[in-house]
Design a protein around this nucleic acid. Structure first.
Length: 331
DNA sequence: CAACCGTGGTT
DNA sequence: TAACCAAGGTT
């Protein structure tokens, strides 16, 4: 038997969503499963505003999994641009190949099949099943976890890693769906996207806009007086890390039409000479993106050992490929 | 399972 | 400005 207070929360949040949802191109009836899948890959740890233009270009160029699968991986990595975590481009391409070869070119609609695809984990499988195939499954992402933590558990932030209790809570909160209950199924699907959107727009991590929240009067965190987080979030170091060096090398490889010599990529050429040769940047010119990438790589003061390590990891990850001609994006 | 993996906007 | 954060996945 449904709980009245829970039903009110279901109503308040889904009603808020109908009035306040962003219009995104991968939402709505025009977006098929492939459109949803591409968006989910790009949205892994990347904000909507940066995904949107890349998604548009991607879908225009590769409207189907087969279209993407027919091209070299390098094209996917280039089109990925500066979205970050370029391994996602590798995995999206690999997933497109699997879909083309083993699923008749159609994105599969069950979570089990989706989970078997490269780059698809628990969240992405559930999201595609729910958003693209209207499967009333439990979707849990960082936004949903945070809303649940505040609204129900009275905490400022969810636990540092997702646990069984959080999953059980999400399952308990999901509106009841199932055979012969089309209204319940529709509500469950709405609920997932609505809670996610609430977390993204209102119940944000750092400065929640509680004055705009549809369930502020039912929020356990508000009732508790908005207590501070019970732990200190772990930082994500960047300067001086291997990731920074990898990123700089990837930028060079993305913009390079020809293979790059190993010593050049390692930046072991004289840095002062390289800087002296650097001409002023002209952002309007395509060629200057390549120039900018080179300058960025050479500007790093990373030790030679670290550069070697970063390049080795790029090769190991399949983001770069070694040939007699030099180093380039994988084909 | 904790650590690793990019990038750029926000606070 | 340094730190934080973002529709996670993989090892």
């Amino acid at each position: 038997m449904p709980h009245p207070a829970l039903e009110k929360i279901h109503h308040d949040i889904t009603a808020w969503y109908s009035a306040n949802a962003r219009e995104l191109p991968w939402r709505g009836s025009a977006a098929g499963p492939w459109a949803v899948m591409v968006s989910e890959f790009m949205l892994q740890q990347t904000p909507v505003v940066r995904v949107r233009p890349v998604w548009e270009a991607w879908m225009q160029r590769w409207p189907t999994p087969a279209a993407l699968a027919a091209e070299p991986v390098a094209e996917a990595v280039r089109a990925w641009g500066r979205l970050g975590y370029p391994r996602r481009a590798l995995r999206l391409h690999a997933a497109a190949v699997v879909i083309t070869n083993e699923h008749g070119g159609k994105v599969p609609g069950t979570e089990a099949e989706l989970l078997a695809l490269p780059g698809v984990g628990t969240y992405t499988a559930a999201a595609i099943a729910c958003f693209a195939f209207k499967v009333p499954t439990v979707v849990v992402d960082t936004n949903i976890r945070r809303v649940h933590a505040r609204l129900v558990s009275g905490k400022a932030l969810p636990e540092q890693s997702q646990n069984a209790a959080e999953l059980a809570l999400a399952a308990r909160l999901l509106p009841q769906a199932g055979e012969g209950n089309d209204a319940g199924t529709a509500l469950a699907n709405d609920w997932n996207i609505a809670v996610m959107e609430l977390g993204a727009l209102v119940c944000t991590a750092r400065s929640p806009r509680c004055e705009d929240c549809p369930v502020v009067n039912q929020c356990a965190w508000i009732a508790a007086g908005r207590p501070e987080p019970h732990y200190k979030p772990k930082g994500q170091p960047w300067h001086g890390t291997d990731r920074q060096v990898r990123g700089a090398m990837m930028a060079v490889l993305r913009h390079s039409t020809a293979p790059v010599q190993r010593r050049d990529l390692l930046g072991t050429v004289d840095l002062a000479a390289a800087a002296a040769e650097a001409r002023p940047l002209n952002p309007a010119r395509e060629a200057d993106d390549e120039h900018r990438a080179w300058v960025g790589l050479h500007a790093l003061d990373a030790p030679a050992e670290q550069r070697e390590r970063a390049l080795a990891s790029l090769l190991a990850d399949g983001l770069a490929q070694q040939s007699p001609a030099g180093i380039a994006l994988p084909r």
